[in-house]
Design a protein around this nucleic acid. Sequence first.
DNA 1: CATGAATGAGACTTCATTCAT
DNA 2: TATGAATGAAGTCTCATTCAT
Lengths: 197, 197, 197, 197
Amino acid sequence: MKKAKILENKRIKMTKLYDAAYELFTSNGVHNTVIDDIVKSAGVAKGTFYLYCKDKYDLVNKIIIRKSSTILNNAMKAVEKKKTEENFDFVQCVIYFADYLIEYFKKDKKLLELIYRNLSWELYEKVMHYEEMETAREAFIENFIHAGGNSLAAKYRLYLIVSMVGSVCYSSLVLNIPYKIDDVKEELYRSIKQILA
Amino acid sequence: MKKAKILENKRIKMTKLYDAAYELFTSNGVHNTVIDDIVKSAGVAKGTFYLYCKDKYDLVNKIIIRKSSTILNNAMKAVEKKKTEENFDFVQCVIYFADYLIEYFKKDKKLLELIYRNLSWELYEKVMHYEEMETAREAFIENFIHAGGNSLAAKYRLYLIVSMVGSVCYSSLVLNIPYKIDDVKEELYRSIKQILA
Amino acid sequence: MKKAKILENKRIKMTKLYDAAYELFTSNGVHNTVIDDIVKSAGVAKGTFYLYCKDKYDLVNKIIIRKSSTILNNAMKAVEKKKTEENFDFVQCVIYFADYLIEYFKKDKKLLELIYRNLSWELYEKVMHYEEMETAREAFIENFIHAGGNSLAAKYRLYLIVSMVGSVCYSSLVLNIPYKIDDVKEELYRSIKQILA
Amino acid sequence: MKKAKILENKRIKMTKLYDAAYELFTSNGVHNTVIDDIVKSAGVAKGTFYLYCKDKYDLVNKIIIRKSSTILNNAMKAVEKKKTEENFDFVQCVIYFADYLIEYFKKDKKLLELIYRNLSWELYEKVMHYEEMETAREAFIENFIHAGGNSLAAKYRLYLIVSMVGSVCYSSLVLNIPYKIDDVKEELYRSIKQILA
DNA sequence: CATGAATGAGACTTCATTCAT
DNA sequence: TATGAATGAAGTCTCATTCAT
């Protein structure tokens, strides 16, 4: 059918734009990437860009949402596996989750930079409220209450842990503040334990 | 004397530029502020700008360094006072320091945003290695060792605490992530205590 | 066809830029002509200029190459005609070639000035190695050898003659050094003869 | 006396400006040298520049006049010496004069470039009508008439020779057109002889 | 849908010149 | 005289966006 073909073509164009832009954004920064670079690299015409995106920042957001959802999903799957296969307890799961992300971003610092530098509340919302994330959050709170805590404290502590881990990653991996992430890890995981204690 | 007058004039020009730029950067963002806005607002000629700054980002850095040094100094003085007058112990001091900054940034969210969005390792270095800061860091480590810890763990825990506090401030105050800073505070300070435990 | 129309439009834009710039460069000098003058005079937008030229000096070069190629081609054709129709010998041809150029530049001093003031080795190369020029040069050397000379001497004498004629034209026509070109001509042609003797 | 001291001071300032500007003009070109470079390099204040020169181009002219007068004078003295000591005849003298200049400019290409690129009729006039030059010119014409020529032909041939030598120097030494001046010399001197024949 | 030439507002930066000291 | 901070007009170049094809 014609319609299917057209839709498929659109998807291809969009993907080309995503991929080209991602490469440029992470290599040269969003600020130093101009629409012309993107379309040239994607092999489409300039006008085409505007058929798919409002502007450069719209594209950055779309890319961040896509990438972070993927990573978070993978992290959650990995945690799930450990839980099932190795019987990880609650704290172990949280730490493993953090560790998964740290290991990932060690190999893809540029993405971490892209995400951090362009974070906004709207973006955070979208990423954090994907269905799977919601489930994971609820599991966290559930577990916490089980251990004798209250729902609010659970939320806050999760928030504190996420903030601490994210910020440490960013400082060590992107800003290159001279505390190597591997050196800090031990203390970081100890701190998570303490916060959850 | 003549020379003194000229130097005084230079200082005034510089201050006018700093103040105008600070106002514009915090109100509209660095990206949306153009040199023209700054000089118009400062009431100086465009060429004058380039007499004092290499470019816009040079000015941002200078402003950040100046502002953060002032705030950190004030925070340290306040802590010192508590220690002397109210006999605050080590952990209390750390928490009070965090609290001082949180309370400050609650009233000046825009500055926090400016600092965070333009942070780089070089900047961090400059701010963190002012003589007074160095003294405070050493005091922290000293205290920590006294309590039976080791120097490295001290450094890392300090780093973790700073990261957590900074990140929570930024998220709650700037990104407006819907955990009010005042609601999180209690858990935040508890977490600091735990990390230092 | 559509494509042809677009290409035609591009050619027109380019021509408009060339013509406007040529007029301004020769009237006011390259230094005193700014991009704004050119685009205003050509009736195109400023951005359009940068679609066709890297900068002002790129345009100067392009204009010089175009103009000098045309003139040299015409000169060569005129010589050819004399040779065929009036049986001009070698020395007569060389002198007629010089004379053709002198007469041309007498009517277009400004172009001579433009060419001389912006001459560089790369430009010289480009102009001198157009296919037709190459043929003429070879004919010169050929003739010279025929008359008992050697190839190297031929090249050098051609170079000396070109230098002398060019320089005299420039001094008399552009710098207005008070030897009128018509007064010097006789001695100039005698000198060419002597050099070729 | 005070007056003498003041005058001496002025002379020193002027010399500093000349020397600094000469260095910059020949190294970076007149176009790429700004007043600020000159005064900074000369170690005087910007305002001082305007006490001594109308503008940059005024200074270029002054420098060219000074430098070329010196060189031409030296050349003439050298010729005179050859004439007296080695009994050089007229043609030998002319060729030796050309050779002296060529050898000089081989060692100081930048000066040749400066002179050529900024030549104007007024400048040419000033340089050519220094008393000593006038004397040399007259000697040339005298000699020529002696040999049976007429005054006008003498002037024109001198003009042709000067043009040819100057232009060849400029092309070979400055534009780097790939005929090495040493390779062309033989033919150049032969041509001078022929023109004077 | 797709194209890419054209646009022109607007950003940055330079630098000759002035003038109060 | 000498200074050099201040000026601001003038220039270069960019790039998001449009629109005719």
